[in-house]
């Protein structure tokens, strides 16, 4: 017996296994970051003096740049999926390549931000704000690295699946895309919360 609904959608849920799986996984991710964001709110409300982004020199231009980078990468990941829908594996590889490249750009920028902090002698232990800043951006960074891993696999060895099971491969790329959108979305929340408010 074969495992059903690997490629085609299940009549009742209207999605295939992988798609349902990724949505469930994202639900738990929402709980994770939800918990962290609410911790942020509780700690901030309870704080006597809150070192805001202006007191601690956060590099807003760089962060804005990074926001742009991530948003673009979200677009390119959609393009890569779209090209698969149009049966164009070449275009797919290009767009997926760009996506990964952009994710690296994001990490490099983050690296410069971090080192800048350390040079000012600003560490997670310096203040509760910095603790939250490093923990949340760090966790988000790990998610980005995870995304690079997945996308890298789908660009390299994983793409062999295209020749044998094109639909399945397309749906995998779509799921990776969903995850990537989520990572992007988290950043869209982090940026204003940490840098602007």
């Amino acid at each position: 017996m074969e495992i059903p609904y690997i490629e085609e959608a299940h009549p009742e849920t209207g999605v295939n296994n992988a798609k349902l799986g990724i949505w469930l996984f994202l639900a738990s991710e929402v709980m994770l970051f939800g918990a962290l964001f609410s911790s942020y709110i509780i700690l901030r409300l309870g704080a006597t003096d809150w070192p805001s982004g202006r007191v601690v020199p956060l590099n807003i231009p760089l962060a804005t740049l990074n926001t742009m980078v991530l948003i673009t990468s979200s677009v390119t990941v959609v393009m890569s999926w779209a090209s698969l829908m149009m049966k164009d594996i070449g275009k797919y590889k290009m767009y997926m390549g760009i996506t990964i490249a952009l994710s690296f750009v994001f990490l490099v920028v983050k690296y410069f931000e971090y080192t800048a902090k350390f040079d000012h002698g600003l560490y997670p232990s310096t203040s509760t704000f910095l603790a939250i800043y490093f923990t949340m951006t760090g966790l988000h960074g790990l998610h980005v690295i995870g995304g690079i891993g997945v996308n890298g696999y789908l660009l390299g060895p994983g793409s062999k699946l295209w020749d044998t099971h094109p639909e399945q491969f397309t749906s995998r790329v779509e799921c990776a895309g969903l995850y990537w959108h989520f990572v992007d979305l988290v950043w869209i929340f982090l940026f204003p919360v940490l840098y602007l408010l």
Binding site: L24, A27, S28, E29, M31, L32, G34, A35, L36, S39, L43, Y123, P124, S125, T128, A131, I132, F134, T135, L139
Partner: peptide
């Protein structure tokens, strides 16, 4: 699926407190 992530967050913060000297 839905109850564990908050502990994941709590464990991460406690880890930060222990290892990186934060004060969550």
């Amino acid at each position: 699926l839905l109850a564990f992530p908050p502990l994941q967050a709590a464990a991460t913060m406690q880890f930060m407190d222990r290892v990186f000297g934060t004060s969550f």
